[in-house]
Design a protein around this nucleic acid. Structure first.
Lengths: 411, 411
DNA sequence: ATCCGCTTTGTGAAATTACACAAGGCGGAT
DNA sequence: ATCCGCCTTGTGTAATTTCACAAAGCGGAT
């Protein structure tokens, strides 16, 4: 049912806009068309569409492809197929999400994917010639998308600079920050936090793109600003609603997805406190860093914690460590035990540590150590004898506990 | 047996030195003579002494009156008698300390006592005329002693300035400090500490003199430098031997004596760590201040502690408080308990505090609280319910313990 | 007065824990 | 090989702790 009869290439001309390209494709193929950027954000869609499916409606309304659709397309391997193919790909309908039959082609520039053209082809009216036209259209769209991309890149550069300025505390006043945000067209939330996502490898250009792709396609989270730093991604997120537990959980899920799709593995995810003054970005950032360090030094204790406010008394550890470094004083009892341990390979210190962690419950501690409780009793007696420790004295136990935690941090 | 026959006053002339005065008195009275300053330090003694007692020998050898002699003289009220009397005072022999009969007169300038003249009068050979001569001698000595005093005052001024410079960290290098000490004739010990003695009243000129008198007459302690500051006396003491426990104990005793003699009551006595570099005076001073603050905020816990190294984990408290003030985050469980306490006047928080201090031993804590142990059990159940606290979790208990200590500090 | 929730104290049974003692393993020194 | 100090495990008993329940006091509300 195609209506082009002459060998003349309808896409060999300058289009004034991406919308014009979409409309042209739609006219030629007589099908609804949408054009997206690389993050599945809507760039243009054909008007006068004869009929359209729920997914297309949702995409146009939300100005991006719905998250669950992207998820499904990934799960079915369709996105990878499109990204890997130089020619249009036919996608069979997926009724469960209301997706009709369509044809998709990637818009590329060398290796990079700039976006996608989607054509709804419910009645399978597109023939070989149509696919060829679509291919030509994708070439024609490249120029326009490159423009969009460079524009976005420029804006991103500026936002990076702005964000770094806040992170390093080099912005000198609150209203300067707000003004600058306004200038850049960034709407700052009432309340925010700084979040750090650390990966197991250096975030090179490609990985970075992939990470951002994952984040961008999940519209659930409002990520206002972000910047990359070696193995880390620093993000300023909206903290206005303050269902932070759910918030973090959602991000964790996102990280999981990232690993599934690209094999990029975020190892840690931490966040500072929430603030409303943007002069406090430095503070929130420092807090996130503190949590990050804590996770590295005390992985066991920090296993399920991500936010600074969850640290409990551990938030005092860094400053305590500082104090200890400034005035190194060895704990008399502990150093005696350590000495004994060194001479007799006898793990009294670790026994003590676990005993304390088990709330001084002999039974529990013995189980944790996989030893008989009388063995533990014996060791405890040795500990009290050698170290001159009274295990019925809270003061001493606190002292030991803190000291042990600090030792653990340093090792 | 006196040998002056003419009414001519032998003390109505200029003496070239204090020794000359001592010799002149000795010649006239035919007795051994010693002249001391107000702190019982030897200034001069007559030569050609016919006979002399153990105390005099010890005084001359040690260049000061032995401590136990001064103690005895105070105990017998003799020093006070001499200080209060305008005329020579006869002191009967005290055999237990080897003190023969002697006559003493204070050298005074207006109200101030500049020193003392002591005359050994074993054979009671001094008559009215002799006492009168002694009086005249004391007037004659005044000028010389004033010279000595002003000299000492000048040197003290300089040492104050020097010490303050170190305390405030305004000395810029180690060798500058050592040079300056050399210049002032101060021999700095290899290792030192800063000690703070705080009194219950402002240290006015008079009290200050009395305090110094007590310290000076106790030669046991080597006090190198000192300076007064409102209610405090700051002292740099020799820490080379490092029998600090005994050292502090001795100072405590000294303080006791001070109270007995003058009613000046030192309330706190604290010391920083010992250092050997004199650039570290600031540190030791800061540490002493820290201990002082600690004693004020947590008197119970610090009752028997004086030195920074005895603080144990408490040395982290100030920096923890700082952190807490920087980021005020209320402890969820504790604030619930506090709220409940406020509504029901039910001391759950204090119960918890004591329970923790009693090492979570129900029996012990119940005794401390003067309640039945089941009452405590009941309250503990309420605490776990209301505060959502698991009292079998060391982490939580540590958190609570630290938080409670910080609360206590702030209140 | 009466009720009700909160608290304290007392009692006794059940569970847990501490402790003394015995037996044996392990490794280094003689 | 033998001894010895150090460590581990097992057993049984004594002591302690925990817990459920009863009784009753107290203060505020109805």
């Amino acid at each position: 049912m195609n209506v082009h009869l002459d060998p003349f290439d309808p896409f060999d001309r300058d289009f004034e806009s991406i919308e014009a390209i979409a409309d042209t494709i739609s006219q030629i193929l007589q099908c609804p068309v949408t054009i997206e950027d690389s993050n599945h954000r809507l760039l243009a869609y054909s008007t006068h569409a004869p009929d359209t499916d729920p997914v297309r409606i949702a995409t146009i309304i939300g100005r991006r492809v719905p998250e669950h659709v992207i998820s499904m397309l990934w799960r079915e391997g369709i996105i990878e197929q499109i990204m890997g193919s130089q020619v249009p790909v036919i996608i069979e309908p997926i009724d469960s999400i209301g997706l009709n039959r369509r044809i998709a082609v990637a818009i590329r520039h060398h290796q990079d994917i700039l976006g996608y053209i989607w054509v709804m082809d419910e009645h399978q009216g597109i023939d070989e010639q149509g696919l060829d036209d679509l291919n030509k259209a994708s070439h024609a769209a490249r120029g326009k998308l490159l423009q969009v991309q460079t524009q976005r890149r420029r804006r991103e550069e500026q936002s990076f600079e702005f964000f770094w300025g806040m992170l390093t505390g080099s912005m000198d006043s609150e209203h300067r920050i707000v003004d600058r945000a306004h200038q850049l067209g960034i709407t700052l939330p009432k309340s925010y936090r700084i979040m750090i996502i650390e990966f197991d490898t250096l975030l090179n250009e490609k990985l970075y793109e992939q990470v951002l792709y994952t984040i961008h396609t999940a519209q659930r989270h409002r990520k206002v600003l972000h910047v990359r730093q070696e193995q880390r991604l620093l993000v300023l997120i909206d903290a206005t609603d303050e269902d932070m537990d759910g918030h973090i959980a959602a991000w964790m899920l996102l990280m999981e997805r990232m690993q599934q799709r690209f094999g990029v593995k975020p190892i840690h995810l931490t966040s500072g406190l929430s603030y409303s003054l943007y002069m406090d970005v430095v503070k929130s950032y420092q807090e996130a860093i503190t949590v990050m360090n804590m996770k590295k030094h005390l992985p066991e204790e920090m296993r399920h914690l991500h936010r600074y406010e969850e640290l409990g008394w551990y938030r005092f550890l860094p400053t305590m460590m500082q104090e200890r470094r400034a005035r190194p004083m060895k704990h008399l009892s502990l150093s005696k035990l350590k000495e004994y341990d060194k001479e007799h390979q006898s793990g009294l210190v670790s026994t003590l540590s676990i005993f304390l962690q088990a709330d001084c419950n002999v039974k529990r501690a013995a189980e944790m150590l996989h030893i008989h409780s009388n063995t533990l009793m014996y060791r405890l007696k040795r500990i009290t004898d050698i170290g001159g420790i009274d295990l019925n004295d809270m003061e001493q136990k606190i002292s030991l506990y803190l000291e042990l935690k600090m030792d653990q941090w340093q090792s």
